[in-house]
Design a protein around this nucleic acid. Structure first.
Lengths: 118, 118
DNA sequence: TGCGGTACCCACCGAAAGGTAAGTGCCAGG
DNA sequence: CCTGGCACTTACCTTTCGGTGGGTACCGCA
């Protein structure tokens, strides 16, 4: 069930937003960029507050949209590794200036930041 | 009711997305960038499919967040003009690379585009 | 007199997004 | 034997988002 989202779109931003929208998606992309490859549990611990359901759901959608690669190791206990595809990594690059703008804004309005720890 | 959104945020992208999320916001920003200043009705006609309720709502939120300026002319019939603030215009600039990425993606996946006319 | 244009507001409703809590199968460690 | 960790799935519920259709006050035009 559920295919890759395909528009129709008004413009490029519209299409990009469609793919990034979702409470955790940009955060997942970010985490994957920083760590290269991550297991499910690592991602979960890296995104404080995310539920398992939400994390799998968002990961599935990112996978369907071709931004994230999912590698399953047939072992017991299960092991699954997530990483960015080329398209995902180029999206991340395109998000950089937006991230800078957001950081500036946080400073400007004095918003609080969630401490992610390490 | 309803104040400027203030986080807490995980990172800059998070903060930026918070402000741009909403079905019409990036489109409004785009339209305002292209035309400089627009009246309510002009915006409505420029965004095919938007309802009046949605348009006012999104404009109010953009205004609260300091991205859009609202100039009221006390006339009959009423006249209201919307334009980008400096912050709104810098956000638009930060969205450019994301827009390019989206345009590329539309091409790649062969998504259909909504014709906005002129 | 009545209609259309201006820029809205309001109540209501259905759909979609997101949260909570539980269950799954298997194994290692205490 | 019981618990915890792995990577999920499922059912259910609440909250938010967005759409529909009405009303407002005023004026100009026919």
């Amino acid at each position: 069930m559920s295919e890759m989202r395909r528009g129709p779109y008004f413009c490029g931003i519209d299409a990009a937003m469609d793919v990034v929208a979702g409470k955790w998606k940009s955060l997942i992309l970010w985490d994957l960029q920083e760590h290269g490859t991550r297991r499910f549990g690592e991602l979960r611990r890296g995104l404080p507050g995310v539920s398992e359901k939400m994390l799998t759901q968002q990961l599935r959608e990112l996978e369907e949209d071709g931004l994230v690669h999912r590698e399953i190791y047939r072992q017991v206990p299960p092991k699954v590794e997530y990483s960015l595809t080329e398209e995902g990594s180029s999206l991340n690059a395109a998000l950089e200036s937006l991230g800078d703008w957001g950081t500036e804004r946080i400073r400007r309005i004095g918003a609080t930041k969630v401490d992610v720890g390490v």
